[in-house]
Design a protein around this nucleic acid. Structure first.
Lengths: 171, 171
DNA sequence: TGAGGGTACTAGGAAGTCCAAGTAGTTACT
DNA sequence: AGTAACTACTTGGACTTCCTAGTACCCTCA
């Protein structure tokens, strides 16, 4: 592995921000940059854990979503909405999962425009295995104390709501 | 804009996790998924603010780093280390910035292997303008209260240190 | 001095994200 | 019933990230 930096690059950037008279923006910059970096670290860990199953996080998320549904099927558009990614990203992900026979496309019974994505038996099996790996190797192995984890989740949940990512309601 | 989801998909996933007997991993899953989603939201905002300047976040970060240095120049490898991205990502970013005449490549004076990336006058100007936009439109416009922002930064800083992202020491 | 081991950068490729635009199919309204 | 507006999906393109492999150069040590 590469030798780590001898200082925190984000703290350094924050210092620069303050020295340039942008104090008001310094914490926002630091928070956003921290999240970007944390995401990079987590994505690397998640993808490393999923690699042995031939999955990536994007593929896992779709499989996991399908596996949770009543009959293992969902229209592409619903998957796009639930996963909060662009429809074309779902097309892309489904292409690859279909290539690996973990899902298959199926015509929607009543809406001629829509396509159902259906998880296959093999897809279900891999999803369960992958979930175990993630739970064991990543989700329960965080270097963040429980109380900090709770407040992190709380802060981001509130933020996402304020950002219009979802609305309180239904169900 | 798309109609937002009528419920929090992460809270939903957490519920599923608990119902499947994975309670111990539920908070880790929720935290990591929240960070992934927050990153997506922030990246979209940042890129939207930078679009008017013809930049992306990756390009901005490199320009900003160069503009902070004493003489506006840095070897590619140093930039890679500071930005914590793969060397080939820097090559890619520099290619595009060079195409737009915001930086130029220059031979390293003493090390024949190395290449210096040098910011141009135009690059400096755009960097300053872009910084103003980001500070105004994004960094000071977060829907997160100051105290929550502080603890978010604190938690992620501690995490990054624990994850070996950097080491305390050399200023 | 000269050979081997490292370091710096680039090329090519796989993936992911998004956007813009195009084709079908559906719905709603006159 | 027929047209207009909307929705669902795909294609193609831009961009970012990483990985693997290859070339060129430096540096240490026998």
């Amino acid at each position: 592995m590469p030798i780590p930096l001898p200082m925190d690059p984000i703290a350094e950037a924050k210092r620069h921000w303050i020295n340039h008279g942008w104090s008001e923006a310094a914490n926002g910059m630091a928070a956003i940059t921290s999240i970007m970096r944390a995401q990079q670290i987590f994505l690397a860990r998640v993808d490393a854990a999923l690699k042995q199953h031939g999955l990536t996080f994007a593929r896992f998320e779709l499989l996991r979503l399908l596996a949770f549904t009543r009959d293992g099927a969902l229209p592409m558009a619903s998957a796009s909405a639930r996963l909060q990614v662009h429809p074309t990203s779902v097309t892309n992900t489904v292409d690859r999962l279909e290539r690996d026979a973990l899902v298959r496309r199926q015509a929607h019974p009543t809406d001629g425009r829509a396509t159902l994505v259906v998880i296959t038996d093999q897809g279900r099996k891999i999803t369960e295995d992958a979930t175990q790996s993630l739970n064991h190797d990543v989700f329960t192995a965080l270097e963040i104390p429980a109380d900090a984890l709770d407040s992190l989740i709380q802060t981001l949940t509130t933020f996402r709501l304020a950002a219009g990512d979802y609305v309180e309601g239904r169900r």
